[in-house]
């Protein structure tokens, strides 16, 4: 589904990623872990085309491809983003729209779907994240946990093949964080939902619970890819993160 090959990314002279390679299968839940500053978020942002990279390649599905060192064509970028959704640490809900309109915004403004159809989908998704009673609330009237759940519903609304979670619970207190993780758990457990998920998080307990695969990032490379049990085993590659 997503294949990252030898990704090289520098901020000016500072290397961030130095030949990172990983693969995420269809419907798989992958966790990206590593110490702070190891480039986890950067890697995610490269996959979604929010950041350019110097070398390597990112392929999504069979048709979509980003190549390092060149600006991707606009059409390719747009197609990529409509395939790969993203959930941000700071939620980034649109503050001037209600929760319902936020969830409808992708289908209506990006995909050009009719309002009625988008609204039905959006109501379903809000119910799914437990916010059926918050249709008309503006983001400022919602708690952080509720906002992040709306953001997840919004990402799902465009029916993506993959969703990237960029530290979705870091800005939340433990209670709200658990509330959001329950939603992600629920999505991960849903066998009918064939969405690949890549999650960058420091919530390693959650990773052990939901991830199919753990990728450990260090020194700008993916140093390990394997099941959580192996990653977090004593003396395992991610043991020192615990």
């Amino acid at each position: 589904m997503i294949r990252v090959t030898n990704l090289v990314k520098q901020h000016g002279q500072t290397p961030i990623l130095n030949g990172a390679t990983l693969e995420v299968q269809k419907g798989q839940v992958a966790a990206l872990v590593g110490p702070s500053g190891s480039g986890k978020s950067t890697l995610l942002r490269c996959v979604n085309g929010l950041e350019a990279f110097q070398e390597g390649e990112i392929a999504v599905g069979d048709a979509l491809k980003l190549t390092g060192g060149s600006a991707p064509p606009k059409a390719a970028l747009l197609a990529l983003r409509r395939t790969v959704g993203m959930v941000f640490q700071q939620f980034n809900l649109f503050p001037h729209m209600t929760a319902l309109k936020n969830v409808m915004s992708g289908p209506v403004y990006a995909l050009g779907k009719p309002e009625a159809e988008a609204e039905a989908t959006a109501k379903g998704l809000l119910a799914r994240v437990g916010l059926a009673d918050k249709h008309d609330a503006k983001p400022a009237q919602l708690s952080g946990g509720q906002q992040q759940r709306v953001a997840i519903a919004r990402a799902l609304a465009v029916n993506p093949a993959a969703i990237l979670f960029d530290e979705p619970t870091s800005a939340l207190d433990p209670k709200m964080s658990a509330e959001v993780m329950r939603v992600i758990d629920d999505l991960a457990d849903d066998a009918a939902l064939q969405v690949a998920m890549v999650i960058v998080t420091h919530d390693l307990a959650a990773v052990r619970r939901i991830a199919d695969v753990v990728h450990v990032l260090g020194g700008g490379k993916v140093t390990f890819s394997g099941p959580p049990d192996e990653a977090f085993a004593p003396n395992g590659p991610a043991a020192d993160l615990l």
Partner: peptide, 17 residues
């Protein structure tokens, strides 16, 4: 905030939209 543009782009909005 910059995140607003990013969130919209991530949803597949064109820059104009």
């Amino acid at each position: 905030p910059k995140g607003q543009m990013e969130a919209a782009l991530a949803l597949g909005f064109t820059k104009w939209a």
